Amino acid sequence: MPPLMLFDLDNTLVDRNRAFRSWALAFLSQRSLPPADLDWLVTLDCGGYLDRQILMHAACERYGLGDCVEVLLKEYRQTLTGLIELPASHRAALADARAAGWTIGIVSNGATAHQLAKIERTGLADLVDGWVISEEAGYAKPDPRIFRLAARRCGAAGTPDWSADAWMVGDHAPADIVGARVCGLRSVWLDHGRPWPETDYYPTLTAGTLPDAVRLILAATGALVPPRTPGTGQHPAPPYAPLRAPNASEHCFSVNFAGVQRGCTNATSGHRH
C-alpha cells in the first residue's frame, strides 16, 4: 500500500493568516477606520483561533459600528474564502509527493462549509485523495479518530500498521504534532520562523515551508521524485518507494496529556475560522 502524507489546511497548505490580513485591511478601508489598527485586528485574530463572534463583537465595540454581527460574519466568511490561495510552490510540492507514489490527504479543524469552500476554491479537491473536517467528523485534532478517518477516506488504512507509513504535516503543535504522536504517525512541524513551543513532546522533523517539509519527508523515506516530462511539467508514475524504519530518535519522546491542549483553551477553540 502506498505511504500516506496528511496535511493541515490553514497556514500549512494555504496561507490563512495572509488572507486574514487582506480582509482586515479591506474592513478598515471600507469603513474609513485607521489603517494602523491592522495590528490590533491581527493580534485579536489569534491566528484564526479566536471565535469569530468574539472578534466581530470586539470590532463593533471598538469602532462603534452599527453593523449586525451576523452580517459582518457572513461578509467575513465570504470575503476570506475568496482571498485564500494555494501557492504554486505548494501545488508543485504536492505533485512531487504524488509522483513519488504517496497518497495525500487533508485533516482540518473547523467548520465544514468554510473549510470545504477553501479546499474547492483553491483546487485542492483535485490534488488530494481525501479530506476530513472536524465539524462533520464529530471529533477534532489531536483526537486519533480524525486521523484514522482521514486515512480510510484516502484508502490508506487497509492494514493494522497503516500508520507506520504515514506522516502528518502541520503548523499547530497541540493539534497536528500531538495528534500525529498519539496516532503513531511521524510528523513535520512548520515553524514559520517560530521556536518550538513545547517541552513534553517534539515533532519528528521541522521545516520552514511546506515544500521544505515534503522534501524532508521524501529524503527521510528514500523516496525518489522522477524528473518532470519536458514540456508538460508532469511526472511519470513511479513505482512505490517503501519507507525506511524510523530510527530511535524519532520516537524517543513522550506526551504529557495534561498539557496537550494548552494552546486551545479559553477563548481559543482549537478550530481556525
Rank of each mutant, 00 (worst) to 15 (best):
D171E: 11
L13V: 10
A95N: 11
S22A: 14
K141W: 02
S269H: 07
A59G: 08
W102A: 05
N256P: 02
D15E: 15
I217T: 01
L94F: 07
E75G: 09
D39A: 15
R31S: 11
G101R: 02
V14S: 04
L94R: 06
C46W: 07
G158Y: 08
V182S: 01
P236Q: 12
D165K: 11
R194I: 03
S269W: 10
F257H: 06
S22G: 01
A213R: 01
T199D: 07
V42M: 03
L65M: 15
P236L: 10
N11T: 02
T79E: 03
L72D: 06
L72A: 11
D8H: 08
C60P: 06
G270A: 04
H172G: 08
R145K: 07
P142Y: 06
R145F: 00
A140D: 04
F27L: 04
L218C: 13
A241V: 04
L13T: 10
Q234E: 14
A24D: 12
L4S: 09
I106A: 07
L86Q: 05
A59R: 10
W162R: 06
T79I: 06
A156P: 13
Q115A: 11
R62Y: 08
A173R: 04
R272A: 09
R31V: 08
V14E: 01
A99Y: 03
A248T: 02
P34D: 13
A150E: 01
A151D: 01
T221Q: 15
L44W: 09
L149Y: 00
G105T: 06
K141G: 06
R21I: 06
T159Y: 08
C183F: 02
A220D: 08
L243Y: 05
W40L: 15
K74G: 14
H90P: 08
M5V: 14
V182H: 00
E120P: 03
W167Y: 08
G270N: 04
G179K: 01
L224P: 04
P142W: 00
P87C: 03
L190E: 07
T112I: 03
R18P: 01
E135C: 10
A19P: 00
F257T: 05
Y202V: 02
R16C: 03
M56T: 12
Q261T: 01
P87Y: 07
L25A: 09
Q261G: 08
Q115L: 13
A241H: 15
V260Y: 09
I104E: 02
D96E: 15
P238H: 09
A24H: 14
S163I: 02
M5D: 02
H192L: 03
D200V: 06
T199Q: 12
N17V: 08
V260P: 02
E250G: 00
T232Y: 09
R194Q: 15
L243P: 14
A151Y: 01
G123Q: 12
T79F: 07
P226K: 03
E75K: 07
H192Q: 03
Q78I: 05
P35N: 01
Q30S: 14
G48V: 06
G222C: 15
D37F: 11
P211A: 15
V182G: 07
W40F: 15
I54V: 14
L65R: 09
T268I: 13
C252E: 10
E61Y: 08
I119H: 10
